[in-house]
Simulated assay, not measured.
Amino acid sequence: MRLLVTRPEPDAGREADALIALGHDPVRAPLLEIEFLSDVPLPLDDAQGVVITSRNTIRALANHPDVDQVLELPVFAVGEATAWAARQLGFREVTIGPGTGAGLPPLIRREVHRGKGPLVHIGAEKVAFDLKGALEEDGFELRRIVLYRSHPVDTLTQEVVSELKSGAISGVLLMSPRTARTFTRLAQAEGLVPEAKGLVCYCLSKAIAEAVAPLGLPVRVPTYAREEDLLALLNSGASSS
């Protein structure tokens, strides 16, 4: 199956390799570009742990002058892939979340004592879920540190547009609500619907499926927000949405 890979590099390349191994034909078209920020301080005083919701945060931390201080703290990772990257960087105490930011508060409420100090959420300028608001409602203190920004691309290449309109591309993989919103905007601008009605959107979570819903395309969502479960849908055709 010919599939559009929309996540930013270098994850687009890694996902494309996984698709090739499964016998698929990936077309890389990253819809977000990542800008890492330099000289951002890490206010870790009194922190009892950090929260990381993307592998791009791990990449940003790898080049940060204060990374050794961060690695001394326990980390809550949004999902298995981010947890693996955190261990590779050098975090020793890693708690694995369910795969989405919205799934982290229940885990943190069970594992973290409110009175032992703040948590530090290190990540992007724009986040899909308001983790700070959700936790502060329960009396937790959460500091946010922005180490990178993501910028939506302005256009799809004409080659990709032509393949989508002709039906040569059978599905698009969408891994974040912002990517899904970007794809929706660009698809509408190019008039891909109704020409691409046969296109299936493989969405990592229900929030992502909601973001692409305006296109009216078929949607597939795995039961769990894990990349391996999403890839499994490509052959099963199953959906939990």
Rank of each mutant, 00 (worst) to 15 (best):
E141S: 15
H151T: 15
R143D: 11
K197L: 02
A189P: 03
F140N: 12
F183W: 02
E159A: 15
G133C: 12
A134K: 11
H113L: 11
E195V: 01
H151K: 15
I145W: 09
L135F: 07
V161H: 05
Q188S: 12
K132R: 15
V127H: 06
L147M: 15
S166N: 00
E190F: 03
G117L: 10
P177L: 00
V193K: 01
I169S: 03
L131C: 03
E136R: 13
T155H: 11
G139V: 12
V120E: 10
G123D: 01
E125Y: 07
E195W: 00
T155Q: 12
T157V: 00
T157N: 11
L142M: 07
K126P: 00
L186V: 04
A124E: 03
L119M: 06
Q158I: 05
L174S: 06
F129E: 02
R178T: 08
L131G: 04
K116Q: 09
T184F: 03
T179S: 05
V146K: 12
S170K: 14
M175I: 02
A196L: 01
K165S: 13
E125P: 05
D154M: 11
R178N: 07
L142I: 15
G115Q: 12
S176I: 03
S162G: 12
S162Q: 12
R185K: 11
G139W: 13
V127P: 04
A128C: 06
E195R: 03
I169Q: 02
L164C: 07
F129V: 08
K197C: 01
L156A: 06
L135A: 07
S176W: 02
G167N: 10
F183E: 05
E137Q: 15
L142N: 12
V193H: 03
A124V: 03
E159P: 07
V120S: 08
F140C: 11
V146G: 04
E137I: 14
P194H: 06
M175P: 00
F129L: 06
V161P: 01
V193N: 02
L156I: 10
Q158V: 11
G171Y: 00
H121P: 05
E163Q: 15
L147H: 13
A180F: 06
V153T: 10
D138T: 13
R144G: 04
L119C: 01
E136A: 11
L186P: 06
R143A: 06
V146L: 01
E125G: 13
T157F: 09
L164N: 08
I145Y: 05
G191Q: 09
F129I: 09
H121D: 03
P177T: 01
L131F: 08
I122L: 01
R149K: 15
H113S: 12
K132S: 10
V160H: 11
E125A: 15
R144H: 14
V120Q: 06
L186S: 04
G198H: 13
R149L: 13
R143M: 12
K165P: 00
L156Y: 07
R178S: 11
T179K: 00
K165A: 15
A134N: 09
E163A: 13
D138L: 11
L135P: 08
